[in-house]
């Protein structure tokens, strides 16, 4: 089933910090402020993964966060997209091979879009969310074609 056009216009994002330094999280918050105003694209921050369409995940996965990150991913209803915000989530960044870090996020759950930067700019985060949905749509199409 193809996603309706409305899906792209009403994305609710849930923000997960898996051990980031808070830099990317502040940039996500900045994207929600009146200056960038993501609500004009229908993007809203939700308080629970049950309402989310897109998971915004920051930071390398620390050991205590590993089971929780998996659980949050499973709690999010389909269809969903995962956007990794920042260098640490994409590659572990400066925390590479740290004793308390499992690894980057794509070692734990499937990732759709990587937004690089330390921290990522709010424009890049918004772009990443939109790209994630475009990817979801192509996935749905290829699944429908089989």
């Amino acid at each position: 089933m193809a996603l309706p056009r409305s899906f792209k216009r009403a994305l609710w994002v849930f923000h997960v910090a898996t051990g980031s330094c808070n830099g990317c999280d502040i940039e996500i918050v900045a994207a929600l402020t009146p200056r960038y105003d993501v609500e004009r694209f229908g993007i809203m921050l939700t308080g629970t993964p049950r309402h989310a369409d897109v998971l915004l995940i920051t930071g390398p996965v620390t050991k205590p966060m590993l089971p929780r990150l998996k659980r949050i991913y499973e709690q999010t209803p389909d269809p969903k997209a995962v956007v990794v915000v920042g260098g640490c989530g994409s590659t572990s960044g400066v925390f590479y091979e740290s004793y308390n870090v499992v690894g980057p996020i794509d070692e734990v759950i499937p990732v759709d879009v990587y937004v690089p930067g330390c921290p990522s700019r709010p424009e890049a985060i918004i772009d990443g969310v939109v790209k994630a949905v475009a990817k979801l749509e192509t996935l749905e199409k290829s699944r429908g074609g089989e």
Binding site: M1, L3, P4, S6, F7, R9, A10, L11, P34, D37, E39, R40, F41, G42, R50, D53, Q75, P77, D78, P79
Partner: peptide, 22 residues
């Protein structure tokens, strides 16, 4: 802020209908 379009609640409902019901 600029704010969402007037039709935003319709988008929201259509999207929610597409989503999985957990």
């Amino acid at each position: 802020r600029i704010g969402p379009p007037l039709r935003q609640p319709f988008f929201d409902v259509v999207k929610l209908m597409v989503k999985e019901n957990v």
